[in-house]
Design a protein around this nucleic acid. Structure first.
Lengths: 351, 351
DNA sequence: TTGTATGCGTTATCAT
DNA sequence: ATGATAACGCATACAA
């Protein structure tokens, strides 16, 4: 490995002079600068970030930890975060926790030991609290996106989960549906709790009462990796659906991936969407809504989640005393996009 | 920051003893070990990876550089790479070059200066050669995925682009199409060149001759970020299409994203797919093919790309003298999945 | 079983 | 404008 000393020796200067050239710090004569630069070129010198961080105590590297890299909501969010980071002269590295607390733990450990300057993180759920506390103890600035964690005061960028869910349910009610079930994410995630509240509020507002078992909880993430063209249907989802009485005329999905699970289950049972059952969900489908303008959704501004979250993080970092400012909470609206997965309820069903 | 010395002092031992506890190296008494561990817990000690790497000259961190994080082919590939890396005790960090040579350059620089142990990289194209040469000079082991780069001998995991393209075109020919155009990725990517070859071979084999302007090149990546629900149609694509004579009855897309651009353009012009024009493409759509089983594709084994690539990389790293072994080239097959974006050509068109 | 001295590659401080 | 020295946090070689 070619070091700053190799350059120095070849240029007949001290290592300090080379360092000054690299960092544009201090005064140096045009002549030596040119000479040093030339030799750095020749020897393909690249500064060792490890050594540099060790003394500088900063890396100019930020980290984004998402929960599902195969979900277009998070990949679009990533692009927003990337743009914001680059615009401020930071590099951004990504990690994927896969909705898995253990993986999240591993990443937190890597992040802690790598001493990145800051972290944008979508926590897997409330159980992430210890991880966040660890970050806080180690004074790693972080911003939460998409999900809050009770017990942790910090900056956070959220979607309007409650409002979005209400909008979805009201859209179904407007279409005459009176038996509306919900398949939600695990209630260990704040977004799932709020979406459930939104669902319940909308029903209450219209004086509708659903059977107790009309709400089902599952993972926000596909239960199995997509490897080919066929994939088993989530068994528990099907079992839940089979025992519903009466059968719902519409289902609200907690996110886009859950919607896919539902559609697959219904297709397996040869139930038509939307003719026999309407389906709506949170989050849009990125590119895919373009070629398959099918699902009616409450679209969240994924790119903005990343961009705003990253900006908040950077501002927090660049403020000298990190934790002095009051914590910020940004809530981004969800927008109803009506497509073709909802049909008017039939009369005998809407009573 | 709490260091190994802080632990040592509190435990009344030397820093070396603490280091030995951390790394399970050398002999230490149960009692001191227990004491040291307890204090590390109490003080929330996390080893400084920077300092450690500086002396160990390795990080146990690998890197995956992809070209489009919003493309499900690459995100599924990422999941495969992640699993393979974790299985071997490595952490994996991601970067997204966005099909942008400058961004790729920035990432290579970060990677070089961060001294990761190895790199799995999908190069943006032939112009990536200098970046790879730089990696080689700095003895950073790397494996190419998805695209080769002429002039660089190295391990590489590719898809059967030529065969896949031939299969797609033959499927169209089997359906009676005689006027088949192609919208391909930039020919600066090896995959695009091979897909073009496959297209041409299939035509030749069936003694079909297309007008010269029947092949159009564009980016593999969406030309504009998806931020909302409407997005302008790629102007040059539309201009190209408008001047085709005769108008093709089928179009082959170089990848899934290009297929989306084509569908959008045709929809804008109110041309029905597949009734008026059939469309097929490379790469599947991940989750989305599940809810919109529409596009006929040559599906590549995205997960396997990542998994095999990562395994190849790790084996290369763990072999003492990296570059002694002969380079490996893995070619993964593409599978035709017939769906609904192809219709038989009408008689007057198929002549 | 445990400790001391040294070096990894860089920058800050202080000197010249 | 340039250089010498110490320090960042850790692990290796060698000693005790």
């Amino acid at each position: 490995m070619v070091t700053i000393y190799d350059i120095a020796k070849k240029a007949n200067v001290s290592a300090m002079t080379v360092s000054r050239v690299i960092n544009n710090t201090g005064k140096i004569s045009k002549k030596t600068e040119a000479k040093v630069r030339k030799i750095m070129e020749e020897m393909n010198y690249v500064p060792n970030q490890m050594a540099r961080s060790l003394v500088l105590q900063q890396t100019k590297i930020l980290f984004l930890l998402i929960t599902d890299i195969t979900n277009p909501f998070y990949t679009t969010l990533s692009r927003g975060a990337e743009d914001a980071a680059n615009r401020s002269g930071y590099r951004l590295l990504f990690g994927n926790s896969d909705e898995n607390l253990q993986k999240e733990n591993d990443y937190i450990h890597t992040i802690l030991s790598t001493r990145v300057d800051g972290l944008l993180v979508a926590p897997t759920g409330d159980a992430s609290l210890p991880h966040l506390e660890q970050l806080r103890r180690h004074k790693v600035p972080f911003v939460l996106i998409d999900r809050e964690v009770p017990g942790m005061d910090c900056d956070v960028v959220l979607g309007d989960s409650k409002g979005g869910a209400r909008t979805l349910v009201e859209h179904l009610i407007d279409n005459g549906h009176r038996h509306i079930a919900m398949v939600n994410g695990l209630s260990t995630a704040s977004s799932a709790r709020l979406r459930l509240q939104g669902y319940q509020e909308a029903l209450l507002l219209h004086s509708l009462h659903m059977p107790d078992n009309y709400v089902f909880e599952t993972s926000y993430k596909l239960h199995q990796q997509v490897t080919g063209n066929d994939m088993p249907v989530l068994p528990s989802l099907e079992a839940w659906f089979d025992q519903l009485e009466p059968r719902p005329t519409a289902i609200v999905a907690g996110n886009n991936v859950i919607a896919i699970e539902i559609i697959r289950m219904l297709r397996k049972k040869e139930i038509q969407v939307p003719e026999q059952i309407s389906v709506v969900c949170f989050d849009d489908f990125g590119l895919y809504s373009e070629i398959a303008p099918f699902m009616t959704v409450a679209a969240q501004q994924a790119y903005q989640f990343g961009y705003m979250g990253m900006q908040t993080l950077i501002e927090r970092i660049q403020n000298k005393d990190h934790e002095a400012q009051p914590w910020r909470k940004v809530v981004l609206p969800a927008e109803l996009i009506v497509r073709d997965s909802v049909a008017p309820a039939k009369d005998e069903q809407s009573q």
